[in-house]
Every structure is written in structure tokens, then in C-alpha cells.
Design a binder for these strands. Structure first.
Lengths: 339, 339
DNA sequence: CTGAAAGCGCTAACAG
DNA sequence: CTGTTAGCGCTTTCAG
């Protein structure tokens, strides 16, 4: 069968030029005369030649592969991000090698090693926390990394998130303005910076108005945990509003409140989420939520990563992008509220 | 900086053996004495050595990379599949290089070429149709390919789907048993084999009972198109049941029927979907649907692909896996119905 | 079992 | 601009 694998040498032979001439024609920073280019292109086309990316990677040291670590694809925010990330990178001539990380921290280490084995040009870690020796390992290997939708204390680690503190504060202000005073919070996984920041911004703003959190339960960013959490929260002295750390859990919260507790949303209780995933806009939920500006987050991530790839000495950047509170029907809207 | 990139030669030097000895220790089909293995492993550990996958790929001709082409990650079925696919492959020592395909057919060609450039060991095409010259191109390149959740007429092309014809038939039988006679169908994108098969199985079973499709509109597997489609379908002589070609559209259909048409589901109209994505089980939709057995589909896909990689002469296989109709609350359940 | 040697396909100096 | 010459880091004969 036609195991075609055409090499540059074969093209060279057919074009009557040297092998390196062929290489030059296919190398962006080229330098070949019009005649050569034409002859080579013709021969290449006839033979169906395409440069072997791996061989190129070996010698150039650039694989044009970006390793992407992801954990949960269940939360619709991630597939969306993955798609945008992949598209943006593709547009720049890079491709994404996917690594599914288990939740365990030890597991993550193995995953990073595997990534490094592929000589990736960079790593994007979405929704995962890296230990400091892991980040050190990457630095040692000379592979830039940027955290997506998660931040870390290490100032040398680039990270792109939405402005979770401001987001949490917005929700607090909104709920307060709506007249809510018995406000509950369903937390995400406590190891996540996003969870901590959303809660911090939220609580701070509440406290600033002299309002204390009425109730707090942990949902770990999981629907089932969120389900249990709401049930606990409503057993005694139910809140009149609940801020849920992400939309994914908020759907479960709304369903539980409506169909198990038989309460009306937003009549009996207002629900606000975070992310603005597609389903938040579906009429069945119509969830008021803080939008994570995925497009801008992706653009920033790609830009930071690529500049670090181009110049290793580019300083780390930590970006928190502001996202709007999207007003929908799951929470009472204060009269005259505008933002 | 510690651009560590340790090579096998360095390990060899430190271990006091030849470079090829190091290679053997790290090559599965090895053959090295216990002493050598130990010395090498020790030196490698001390230096933090790991074989360069790309270099290995160059000489061995096996990159252990699988190219995955995907189009829509909006339909939750795909992220789920991607996750399972990636995990299963990872378990076998392979990794997934993602390629987002635009919808245009010409675009797909470019994507496949790019994939080939990476010397992938195999290709999984999810939810995309390949032209025959493209499949020919892959065959010529000696790269096996299997279609996931989409089939093609070409008998030489391996494909894994659920049994869409049987699934469609199940829905028809169920709706008929429920006493429905004015049955509508919202089609997916007509270029998709899944769409055609689901409809064929559905209509055949209906016809067998002497029932004609009451109405038919096209939703293209898109929520917005589905929205328009339902609206059209209900303007005159509305159906009392609707089979929607996938869950993704079914959510839009349910929302439209409930919140725009102010009809009751399943009171006024039964709705049945296809896929059984996570959201179908959420109380807000509680969608009766045909389950696509993702785990088994993934297992089959991986198995077919890997055996083709191991032995190029492995014949193509076309698998259609049966999935159950999952009974929930969006459609009237016939009395005494059991399946 | 082990080392030496020959490349995989390509890019990057290096002289012309 | 072009051809020649080295390798990238590794696996794989081939002798020993």
C-alpha cells in the first residue's frame, strides 16, 4: 500500500535541487529564489509532500505543541474554554495535546512529566493546582506554563482568571440592593483560588454593609455535593437568597429548591451563579450569574504563553479580567437597578 | 537557568554504560542485565532523565499520538466522549492531539493534513464526515482512522455509533404505545448519518403501525434552529408528541414549548430526545431519551483503532451499539410499559 | 548481554 | 541564494 511518507530528499531529487533548498522553501524564515521556490513547490505538490513536524521539532527544539491539563469537562465552562483555546492556538500554528488529570495531587505530577516528555513548547493548566516543585520542574525544563481559571500565590506563575473578588462583590451588592438579608453561600472546592476569591469578595461586601453570611455550605463544584449542601442549608431557617460558587452547582441548587423543597425561584429565594455557561441562559434556568469573559481570558492566556515561548525572560503576569453580572430571572432585581 | 533536557548519553556517562544500554533500559521490549538496569535507573533518577518521546517517534515511526477531530463541543455528549476517549487512550500510553474542525468540508481537509504532519499513529474523527479522497489520503499515509458517532457508506472505514436505527424505532414504539398519533420530528443536520438513521428507524416503525409523521422540521443539531423549528411546527395543527434528534435540541424544544407556547410537557405534548447527556437527567428537563452508551462506544473505538495500529491489515469494523430508552418525565409513559 | 555505528527527516550553520 | 556538512535524541541492526 502507499505508505506515502514523502521526504524532503525525494522532493529535492525530483525538483533537481538540494535537500536543504526544500527545507528552506518550507521554513517560514526562508530565503530561496523565486525559481527554486517554484520548482520545489511543484515537485512537493506532485509528490504530496508535507514537512514532518516531529523531525522539525527535534532539530529546532520547537514542537509547536501546547500541553493542556484539564480536570473536569462536566462543567460546561471548560469545554467552551478548551474549544476557544484550541482554536486560538491553532490560528497561531500550535496544537493542543490533551492531558486529563485526575483530582489527586500525586497524579498531577505524573501528568506533568508525561507532558514534558512530548517536548511541548508550553503548558496551560486549567482548573488544577500545581505544587511548587512541579512548577519548578517546568521552569527547570524551560517550559513556560500559565494557569487558566485558577491562580496561585507564587508570583512567578502566570495566571489568568476573571476578577473573582470583584465578581463576588457584585453579587453581594446586587443581593443587598434587592433587599435580601438572609443570604446563604454554597462554596466550591475549597482548594480552588476561584472559590476562595469569589467568597472573599462576596463576604467582604456583605460585611461592609453590616450583613453576615446567613448560612454556608460546601458544594465542591460538584452537582451532587451541591444538592446535599442546599438540603442542609434549608433544613432550618432557610435563606432568602443563595449565591452559588458556579453555575454548574447552581443548576442543581435551583432544581433542588424548586422540585424538592417546592419553593419558588426567585419568589421565595433568589439564586445567583458564576460563569455564565450556555445553560445559564436556557429558559428553564434563566440564571442570574457573573460572566467569565471566556474570550478575553483565552486571548490573554494565549498571549502570555506565546510571549513566554518567544522570550523566556518575559516576566510572569497575573491577570484578573472583570466580568459583568448578567441579570436574568433567577434573582429578584432591585427596583431601578442598573449596571 | 536549568534548561535540564537530560539526554540518554548523559545518563550513560554517569552510569558508566553505553548510550544504547540506556535506551534498552527504557524500551519496553528491552534486554538488559539486572546490574545494568539498576545502574541506569539510578543515574537516570539522579539526573531526572526521561526519554524524549519525539526522538523516539522519529526513529521508531510510532508517535503514540492520536489525532482527534471534533466539531461541536457545545453538545455535552462530545466533551463527555472526549474525556472518556482521552482517558482510555492515556491508559494505553497514547495521547490525544486535538483538532477543532470548522463545519466546512474544505476546512476539514486542511485539518486532516495538519494531523498527518504530526505523524499521528491514528485518527479519531468525531461527528465529522470525511470525503472519500480524505480517507484515501489517510490510507495512503498508512494512518488508521475510525469514525466516532458517525458512519459512512464506505465499508472500508471503521465506524462506531450507537444503534441509531434501533433507537429511533424504540422511540416510535414508545410514543405509539403511549397513544400518540400526531407525532412530529425535529431533524438534526441532514448530512449526518446519525440524523438519517434515527429518523429512518423512527419513521419505519411509525409506518409499520400505519402512522405517518404528522410534522417534520429541521433543527440541524443547533439549539437556535431547533427553536425556530418548533415554532414553525406548532403554528398550525400542533403535534401531541415530538421526537427530537438529540438532547441538545430537545432542551431548546422543551423550553420553547413550555415558556413560549405555554404548553405542558408531557401533558400537552410528549418530548423525547437522543443521547442522554447529563442535563437530560436534571430535574428541570427530566428528559426521556435514548442513551448513547458512551463507555462502550469509546471502548470499541479505542480497541478498533489500536488493533489497526498494531496490525495494518486488520479489517475495518462498523459497530452500532444498542442503547436503552431512558424513561423520565418528559413523555407520557404507556400504562404497563416495561422495557 | 552489550557497545559501536547507522540513521529517522529535518534545520542550521558554513562556505561558496 | 545555494549546496554541503553536522547533528537533534533516540532505536536498532550488527558484531563481539
Amino acid at each position: 500500500m502507499g505508505q506515502s511518507k514523502v521526504t524532503s530528499a525525494e522532493v529535492a531529487a525530483r525538483a533537481g535541487v538540494s535537500q536543504s533548498a526544500v527545507s528552506r522553501v518550507f521554513t517560514p524564515g526562508a530565503s530561496a529564489s523565486g525559481g527554486t521556490v517554484e520548482k520545489v513547490r511543484k515537485a512537493a505538490a506532485e509528490l504530496g509532500y508535507r514537512p514532518n513536524v516531529l523531525a522539525r521539532a527535534m532539530v529546532s527544539g520547537k514542537s509547536r505543541i501546547i500541553g493542556l491539563v484539564v480536570a473536569y469537562l462536566d462543567n460546561q465552562f471548560y469545554p467552551e474554554a478548551l474549544q476557544k483555546l484550541s482554536n486560538a492556538l491553532q490560528k497561531q500554528g500550535y496544537h493542543v495535546l490533551i492531558f486529563m488529570a485526575g483530582q489527586s495531587a500525586g497524579d498531577i505530577g505524573a501528568v506533568v512529566e508525561e507532558i514534558l516528555d512530548y517536548q511541548v513548547d508550553g503548558i496551560i493548566a486549567a482548573s488544577v493546582a500545581l505544587s511548587s516543585d512541579l512548577t519548578e520542574r517546568c521552569r527547570a525544563a524551560g517550559v513556560p506554563m500559565v494557569l487558566f481559571n485558577r491562580a496561585q500565590d507564587d508570583p512567578h506563575m502566570s495566571a489568568v482568571t476573571s476578577d473573582n473578588i470583584a465578581g463576588g462583590a457584585k453579587v453581594a451588592a446586587f443581593l443587598l440592593a434587592g433587599g435580601h438579608r438572609r443570604i446563604g453561600y454554597i462554596a466550591g472546592w475549597e482548594g480552588a483560588s476561584t472559590q476562595r476569591d469569589r467568597e472573599a469578595g462576596f463576604v467582604q461586601r456583605l460585611e461592609a454593609a453590616g450583613v453576615h453570611l446567613h448560612a454556608r455550605e460546601v458544594g465542591n463544584f460538584r452537582m451532587d455535593d451541591a444538592h446535599e449542601a442546599v438540603l442542609r442549608m434549608f433544613t432550618t431557617d432557610p435563606p432568602d437568597a443563595v449565591f452559588v460558587a458556579n453555575d454548574h452547582m447552581a443548576f442543581s441548587v435551583m432544581d433542588t429548591v424548586r422540585f424538592e423543597l417546592n419553593l419558588n425561584v426567585p419568589g421565595d429565594v433568589s439564586v445567583v451563579g458564576y460563569d455564565d455557561v450556555p445553560a445559564a441562559g436556557w429558559p428553564a434556568y434563566d440564571l442570574t450569574t457573573v460572566r467569565q469573559p471566556a474570550n478575553r481570558m483565552v486571548a490573554e492566556t494565549v498571549e502570555i504563553l506565546l510571549s513566554k515561548i518567544k522570550a523566556a525572560d518575559t516576566p510572569a503576569r497575573r491577570v484578573a479580567i472583570d466580568g459583568p453580572l448578567v441579570l436574568r430571572g433567577s434573582a429578584r432585581i432591585p427596583e431601578g437597578w442598573t449596571e
